[in-house]
């Protein structure tokens, strides 16, 4: 059964970690609960945060401002939270980094992409989402941090739950 958001954060913050996306046989199980001292945490500072704001701070910023110049394409319903296709494109000048943030995941930061001169501020990838939540695209430019978001619903499978 699902953990409440608060319980989830407490478990994560106390150094233990929440069972992430566990696949049992055929059926996807977006699990929670179960803590284990064996469960690892990523020690890079950008991956420590549980919120968009803490990710921005770990990246040396202050706050992120919502922007309509970031395009985030993701399915509104994901048949499986283990694989959610994401396309992000930034029209903001001077974009040097695009990150994918899911606040309900054990690590809010899923991935960060850095763009040297000559590379378009565009990326397409596939990420895991622990449960129905707002997926966020975070962009860093010369002027600071910006974001947009999209709700992705994670649905359940059929016969065996």
């Amino acid at each position: 059964m699902k953990m409440s958001r608060r319980a989830f954060l407490q478990a994560s913050a106390s150094g233990t970690t929440v069972l992430f996306v566990a696949t049992t046989g055929l059926l996807p199980r977006i699990a929670a609960a179960a803590t284990s001292p064996l469960a690892p945490t990523d020690h890079r500072k950008e991956f420590q945060g549980h919120t968009l704001e803490s990710v921005v701070k770990a990246m040396g910023g202050d706050k992120a401002v919502k922007s309509s110049d970031i395009m985030l394409q993701a399915p509104s319903i994901a048949e499986n939270g283990a694989v959610v296709p994401v396309v992000i494109q930034s029209k903001l000048p001077g974009t040097r980094m695009i990150a994918i943030v899911s606040e309900k995941n054990p690590h809010a930061l899923s991935a960060a992409f850095h763009f040297p001169e000559g590379t378009e501020a565009y990326v397409m990838t596939r990420v895991k989402i622990a449960e129905t939540s707002n997926l966020r695209a975070l962009v860093q430019t010369d002027k600071g941090f910006f974001y947009t978001d999209k709700l992705v619903k994670v649905t359940l499978g059929g016969c065996g739950g």
Binding site: T23, G25, E79
Partner: peptide, 22 residues
């Protein structure tokens, strides 16, 4: 390729998994 499994599954697997759920 079963997205939920991250694996390529065959007809033998498909049938076995259906029977499990049956």
């Amino acid at each position: 390729y079963r997205v939920s499994q991250g694996e390529v599954r065959t007809m033998e697997w498909r049938l076995g998994s259906c029977f499990r759920q049956m």
